[in-house]
């Protein structure tokens, strides 16, 4: 194990097979699975890291082959990264990303949400946190209307939550007069 080359193609000894929801099989290097807490726990439970144990393919019913492909791309890129530190506050609140990450996550919202779900299911903290930050960075600094556009949400809020005034294009230009109206003692009923 210790003398394996980074470019070694997977062999039955150092990899497992995962099966996506649409039945496609992927050979996955054991080294890569360390980044996924779900897979790592599974491998350790079934002792799949031992060469003398027969490895059954692992079904991943929640993940499509396209998503699996995308996730493997992530795992391979981060193969030699240090272990993810959960409490790195500085990192986890920053909105700057590696160029590679920005390109990797330059995908439509629906794919992003699916990838987020997959990252959550497989418990890949670095990927999960990065997607959360990317999503947050797309929201930050925007008005409600702009967020609706970014997230593709149709509003079901007829009136402004605070002023009771019908929502207009952009309510960020709050003029002095507004503050008088908006200070009702309790929020208007929804």
């Amino acid at each position: 194990m210790s003398c394996e080359e980074p470019t070694t193609s997977p062999t039955p000894e150092n990899n497992i097979t995962v099966v996506s929801s649409d039945g496609k099989e992927f050979l996955l290097d054991l080294k890569l699975t360390e980044q996924s807490e779900t897979l790592a726990r599974l491998i350790s439970n079934f002792e799949y890291d031992r060469t003398d144990v027969k490895k059954d393919p692992v079904p991943l019913g929640n993940i499509t082959s396209a998503q699996m492909q995308k996730i493997i791309e992530w795992l391979q890129h981060h193969r030699y990264y240090p272990k993810w530190e959960q409490n790195d506050i500085h990192y986890s609140t920053s909105f700057t990303f590696e160029t590679w990450v920005e390109e990797y996550l330059n995908i439509p919202n629906n794919e992003m949400f699916e990838l987020l779900n997959a990252a959550n299911y497989l418990n890949i903290p670095r990927l999960f946190s990065t997607i959360c930050r990317i999503m947050a960075s797309r929201i930050t600094g925007k008005s409600a209307e702009q967020i609706r556009t970014v997230l593709n949400i149709k509003t079901d809020v007829k009136n402004d939550v605070y002023t009771g005034i019908p929502i207009q294009e952009d309510s960020s230009s709050s003029e002095d007069g507004m503050s008088e109206i908006s200070l009702s003692p309790s929020p208007p009923p929804i």
């Binding site: 959360c132 409600a144 809020v157």
Partner: peptide, 30 residues
């Protein structure tokens, strides 16, 4: 879309935004 994502995950995203964003997010949808 966002509403298909479990609430605890959405909370994690919101947790990474600023107080100004939280105010806007409240006006996006019910």
């Amino acid at each position: 879309q966002l509403s298909d994502i479990p609430v605890d995950i959405v909370e994690k995203i919101i947790g990474k935004t600023t107080w100004k964003d939280v105010m806007s997010l409240r006006q996006v949808s019910r």
